[in-house]
Simulated scan of single mutants.
Amino acid sequence: MSGEAVSGSEPRAVSWSPGAVWPGLQMAAGLVLVVLGLQRQEPLALLLTGLAALFLIPSGVSQLLRRPRIEVVDGQLAIKKLGRVLFVPRSEVVEVRALGSARWGVRQHMMRLEYTDERGREQLDVFTRLDLGTDPRDVVETLTRLGFGDRRGDT
């Protein structure tokens, strides 16, 4: 998380984004697989390594392009989607909540973000540690402290 302090006590900009190391490793692994597939000169090896690279490289590029993933700027929540940045005013954030799920004996924490978009439709986004670069519970705590998601009683 990063923040810039302004003359007041509330930060003007706070952002969360995944690190650049993991997407970089994904892209490098994809390139290594392509080189290995080309060196083997077997159609099956080329097909399998090419399919793996076809998943790894675009995934890494996508993660790098969507940085920062979530940002609070001047009282609005900026959510970076693949093709655009969606700005959500504080009053349109319905709920920010931490979720937890257990799979194979490992507990994973996520952040649930429910908001109303510019067309008036309710949206639900779920972010993991890989999306935010930090524990989602800390992000929920910070967003709640900044006044996002206080509309639970409003209907």
Rank of each mutant, 00 (worst) to 15 (best):
L99R: 10
P18L: 00
P18S: 10
R129P: 03
V93K: 04
G133E: 08
S7E: 10
P11D: 07
G3L: 08
G8S: 12
P43R: 07
A29I: 01
L65N: 04
R97S: 15
D150L: 12
Q63E: 05
R103K: 13
R119N: 10
T144F: 05
V35L: 13
S62D: 10
D117G: 06
L36F: 05
E4N: 10
L65H: 01
G105T: 11
L82P: 00
P23I: 06
G24A: 14
E92F: 09
P11T: 09
E118S: 07
E114G: 06
V85M: 10
G100Q: 11
G24E: 14
E95G: 02
A20W: 15
G60K: 05
F127I: 07
R69T: 04
V93D: 06
S59W: 03
E118V: 02
Q76N: 14
W16E: 02
F87T: 11
L56E: 03
W16M: 04
R103D: 07
L46D: 03
V21W: 13
P43N: 00
V106S: 09
G149C: 11
M1V: 12
G30E: 03
M110P: 00
L36V: 02
L48V: 15
Q26N: 05
S7R: 09
G149W: 12
D131R: 00
G147T: 06
A53M: 00
G24V: 13
R137Q: 13
R67C: 01
L132H: 02
I79P: 02
M27S: 01
R66A: 04
P18M: 05
L56K: 01
S62R: 05
L86V: 15
E118P: 03
D135M: 02
F127G: 04
L65P: 04
R137D: 12
V88R: 01
R84N: 04
V73F: 13
L82R: 01
E10Q: 14
V21T: 13
E71H: 06
G75S: 07
W104D: 14
Q26E: 13
L146I: 08
A98C: 08
G19S: 15
V140C: 15
V35M: 08
R40T: 12
R151K: 09
S59R: 09
V61A: 11
V140A: 13
V85Q: 12
L25Y: 02
A13E: 15
Q26H: 07
G30V: 03
A78P: 00
G153W: 14
F148M: 10
G75R: 12
P11K: 05
R119G: 06
M111L: 15
I70W: 08
M27Y: 00
R40L: 07
V32N: 06
F127R: 06
S62Q: 07
G3R: 10
E4K: 06
V6L: 11
L47W: 15
S17F: 02
L47D: 04
R67P: 05
L46M: 12
A53I: 02
S62H: 08
V140M: 12
V32Q: 03
P11L: 05
D138A: 10
P68C: 06
I70Q: 01
E141C: 08
V35E: 09
V21M: 12
A45K: 03
D135H: 11
D150H: 14
G30F: 01
S101T: 15
V94L: 11
L86S: 04
R40Q: 14
P58C: 03
L31V: 15
E122W: 08
H109N: 13
